[in-house]
Design a protein around this nucleic acid. Sequence first.
DNA 1: GCAAAACAATTGTGCTGACATTAAGACTTT
DNA 2: AAAGTCTTAATGTCAGCACAATTGTTTTGC
Lengths: 246, 246
Amino acid sequence: MANNLGLSIDRSSPVPLYHQVVQGIEAAIYSGVLEPGSRLDNEIDLAAQLNLSRPTMRKAMDELVRSGLLVRKRGVGTQVVSSQVRRPLELSSLYDDLTNNGKKPTTEVLSFSHLEADDPTLATLQLPAGSKVYHFTRLRKVGGKPLALMENWVRDDIAEMDEAMLGAEGLYSILRRGGVNFRLATQRIGAMTANDYQASMLDTPAGSALVTMERTAVDDTGRRVETGHHVYRADSYSVEMTLVQR
Amino acid sequence: MANNLGLSIDRSSPVPLYHQVVQGIEAAIYSGVLEPGSRLDNEIDLAAQLNLSRPTMRKAMDELVRSGLLVRKRGVGTQVVSSQVRRPLELSSLYDDLTNNGKKPTTEVLSFSHLEADDPTLATLQLPAGSKVYHFTRLRKVGGKPLALMENWVRDDIAEMDEAMLGAEGLYSILRRGGVNFRLATQRIGAMTANDYQASMLDTPAGSALVTMERTAVDDTGRRVETGHHVYRADSYSVEMTLVQR
DNA sequence: GCAAAACAATTGTGCTGACATTAAGACTTT
DNA sequence: AAAGTCTTAATGTCAGCACAATTGTTTTGC
């Protein structure tokens, strides 16, 4: 069963070979060339077809297995899992998610200040006493409808920002342009009921359900860059993720 | 800086070498031998110290980077990230999580039946028309306090189960003992307010906040094994996860 | 005819070697 | 003294090989 998935490898490209393979197979799965449940050729043949070594091929398949798109079984082969199983949660911001889905989010900056951090913030961001941070609250709307109320604290020695920038683009894109390379984030998701302030801002009745998220992001040098406490209208937002068994 | 982390490798063990290294370094981090922020020796030296090849060492470090315990930077080295950043969410059940944390959960089976699945369930579990499934609702308490109200549908051609088993142990452990090897699951987390029934079962006021979770689990042969809709008291439950940038 | 044993196919683990790329520091030059 | 340049050290990528472990199939033996 030679499943000729028409992917080609560009050896002069700066993007690593295994990553090209990942992208190629992903595209084949999402476009339907590789149907859910179908078996791939074995690693050695696939590598030969693309003129790659087996380790390179394996590294590509490793990533796809990790992300839940493929399933391998020793002695048997490799299968495409059901297409309905979506991609795992990645480190992205709400703003990115929305724009990637073709929505046009708007951001209203409700407050903005540059001040000395209080003790909990110092501890969360692991800053020395007396450090200053940016503190701001934003309201995000999609299609005119309020979706999220966000409060953030950002260390100030890493990027410049002001109210106008925050109103025009997402926090993460500002930070990335300022040279921050995000590595990981921890977040906690829970629920609460809307108080009067939240209800009025989000245009929903007091007492309605909200999704809460607390997040702290770390950059590639280990610095805690940003922490935030966000609430979302539960009728318009939920978090989807794929868990992969190790 | 030779950071002598006293880990030893057992070449006669059936557990893969790279996995032994992963466990060793994890243990060193959690025990404090490797302090947050400290730099590791470079890959080649580390491999030499343990009499391993560099690819094996790298594979171990890859896993630790993926799970968010280490941070690498080309040309610089590898660092231990802050210890406060916890492990990523894994594919485990609530029951497992609780018992692992020393709690003693109890389960009350509220209803149990073995019947033909309705259309949405057939679609979710990808079963042919007329298939039968187990359907049951359970109430989980910890320390006598209700925590979760759970409704599940399980395909019946994969494991036998009855009311008594569900009252005595977790669903996932029943399925695992029945030979199911879980591979991945998709879940969606959101929020809602408690209706009268939920409120009375969970011993909380009507209208209080609940965390909702919908999950569908897939086994290693690609079959949809189980799907469920759970609600948790928001004052006792939240989901924590670590997101790693790829 | 059936069960056990041998075989083939496939992924899993591990090694050696080579070169590319990036980042930081040391050095030189202006 | 400041700026640019070279060197060095570390991770990133890729090739090729060998053997182990597991699973499904085929053959063999009773």
